[in-house]
Nucleic acid binder design. Structure first.
Lengths: 188, 188
DNA sequence: CGCGACGTTGATTTGCCTCAACGATTGTGG
DNA sequence: CCACAATCGTTGAGGCAAATCAACGTCGCG
């Protein structure tokens, strides 16, 4: 089953019955995305929440000078969405682009809201996921303040070697918040 | 009642019965903190979650060079804790210091876990709170990448004028991630 | 009064950016 | 399968944002 890794993912978060697991995962629909496709464009409303099964995406924003910044890179077992846009139905400030041919599981807002109403375990799962996410964002912010570009690059390699392998220098630079020329100089 | 603003806070997040509200808020205990007190020290386990009623705190970490970075400033209606340490019982990497004589509402881990088991609405409240928090952290990270120190300072003044009023230049600089000398130069 | 914390200012240094050039790699249409 | 364009990685020169270090005046407080 395509939902197998999603089920595994949920089971790691909290104990859950097989029945609940099926109810939840049945509403996630598989979707193939071709390399280069934008599945979310800033200014539009994010109508889906995606779980990556295969492939690689970048979630990025474009500032007023036209520079792209990668907020995060999503590979297997990562989530894709603009939370603010999805939750509140407002225009997104983020873009999501497939960096490879990819496969995701997608759920619509109405289906997700339905699950929140029907299954109490849904709230627990997403509460715990969200709290873990906050920790990660806080740590990343601290790293951005305390570490030099070189140290941040080293940390990235140490922490996510498999992600780094999938990215070219320009995407890595956009993630680290530096120019790709400077990244090239760092690597020596 | 001292829990009045906490109740108001929860009601804004999601509809909730008065009974549930009382069950939850009864387990939050008021606590006075004197200016300068450290209510959490890095290396120790965070055993509480705090909601600020009055006063002002800074949540900060100290890097290997001994530099302090303010992760955030908490005033009325903000939360105090190291989520990772509190959730998982591991040593904290954060410090929390009162910048003024303050008053908070505190709940212990066991009382909070009790509420999660007893009231399903608890999960919803903290799930929504956490998701809002993620949005804020993501935006802050983007600002740190895209904006200059001057622009970040201007954004801080525009967004949280009342917080800026409570802080001296050194604490503001530690929040913005710049030196206090440079902040002084920016302000002209 | 005297001390320590704070704010300011200047001189110097450094981390990183911008711009430009060039070779290497990849992708694509004929 | 090749030719060509487009994208990418590297390198260098020059510039700017911000850090560092040091000095000095101010203020609040014991």
């Amino acid at each position: 089953m395509q939902t197998e890794s999603l089920k595994k993912y949920f089971k790691k978060i909290t104990p859950i019955t097989e029945s609940d697991l099926n109810t939840i995962c049945d509403l996630f629909k598989p979707k193939k995305i071709a390399k280069g496709d934008l599945i979310l464009r800033q200014g539009t409303v994010c109508k889906f929440e995606g779980f990556v099964l295969e492939g690689c995406f970048r979630v990025f924003s474009i500032d007023k000078s036209g520079n792209e910044k990668n907020l995060y890179i999503a590979v297997k077992d990562w989530w894709l969405m603009d939370i603010d846009s999805f939750m509140n139905g407002i225009p997104s400030q983020l873009n999501i682009e497939a960096l490879e041919d990819s496969l995701i599981l997608e759920i619509s807002k109405s289906d997700k809201d339905f699950l929140f109403e029907k299954l109490t375990v849904m709230e627990k799962i997403f509460r715990i996921m969200s709290q873990k996410s906050i920790v990660a964002w806080q740590r990343r912010l601290i790293r951005n303040h305390c570490l030099t570009a070189k140290e941040r690059y080293q940390h990235l390699i140490d922490t996510y070697p498999t992600i780094v392998d999938k990215l070219n220098n320009r995407q890595i630079a956009k993630y680290l918040g530096i120019s790709h020329e400077f990244l090239s100089k760092i690597k020596k």
